[in-house]
Simulated assay, not measured.
Amino acid sequence: MTFNTIATPMLAESGQKSLHLAVRGENEHDQTWIENLHGRCFGPGRFARAAFRIRERFGVDEQLCLVAELDNQPVANVKMSAINVSGLNGYLLGPLATDPLKRKLGAGKLLVSEVVAKAFEVPGCEFVLLVGDASYYAPLGFGPTLPERIEFPAPVDPARVLVAAKDDSMGKRLNGPIAKWVD
C-alpha cells in the first residue's frame, strides 16, 4: 500500500535523473532489512535508547510503521508507539532511520510528514513526541517542550524533546511520565 509518492532530483553521472520516493506500510518482509538498518544507524547502543525502551513496553502501532522506498528499494523506516503523558494520548515517533548511503534525498522528511499526518487522523491523538534535532524537525512542525517535565524510561537530552500538536500550547502542557495510551 502506497500512501504518498514524490519525485526528487538527484545528480547522476549521466546527468540529471529523477528519483521517485514512495511511502508504504511496513510488512513482515521488511523485518530483517529494518533490523540491519537500525544496527547500521544506531549501533548496539540502540537497545538503551528511550524510543527502544518505550517500544519494548508499549509496542508499536503497526498502522504507523512506515517504509520509504526510493525507486522501489527500501531506504528509510519510522515507527510509532502509542503513549500517554499528562492524561493525553499521543504517539512517540522513533526511531526514524535512513540508509546512510541514501540520506539527503528527502526520504526521512517524507516519512515524518506522512506518519504525523496519519497519527493525527487517529481518534484521540493529541500530539506526536520525539527526541531529535530541532533544526531537522522544526520545519516539519515540531517545537520544544518544557525541559525535564516529561519523564522518559531512559536518559534523554531535554533540549531535544520536541512535540507536534494541533494545540500550540501542548509543549507547555505535557508533564509527567510516559505511560500507555488510555482507551
Rank of each mutant, 00 (worst) to 15 (best):
V112W: 02
K166T: 13
L162C: 05
K79L: 10
L92F: 02
M10A: 13
R46P: 00
S14Y: 09
G108Y: 07
A154G: 10
F47A: 11
I150W: 01
E56I: 01
A179C: 04
L21S: 07
E28M: 11
A164N: 15
L96D: 04
L96P: 07
D133V: 06
V75L: 09
V163E: 04
G124L: 00
P153M: 10
K166G: 14
K166Y: 10
V156G: 11
D168M: 07
N4P: 00
I54T: 11
N77W: 09
G39D: 09
D133E: 14
Q31P: 01
E28C: 10
V163N: 05
P100K: 09
R24T: 01
L19N: 14
T32Y: 05
G90E: 08
R24E: 02
L111G: 06
G176Q: 01
V122E: 08
E69D: 10
N72R: 14
E114G: 04
L92R: 04
P144M: 00
L96K: 06
R55V: 03
G106E: 07
E13F: 13
A50R: 07
R57F: 02
P100A: 12
I150T: 06
F3W: 11
F127L: 06
R46S: 00
K109V: 00
V182N: 15
N175L: 00
T2P: 01
N89W: 04
L70W: 05
E121W: 00
L21G: 06
A82T: 10
K109D: 14
N77T: 04
I150Y: 02
P158T: 13
L111M: 05
L111F: 07
E126P: 03
L19I: 13
I150L: 01
L174V: 05
D133R: 11
S135D: 12
A12D: 15
R53T: 09
P100Q: 10
R55D: 08
C41A: 14
V116T: 15
K17N: 12
V163L: 03
V23W: 01
V182W: 08
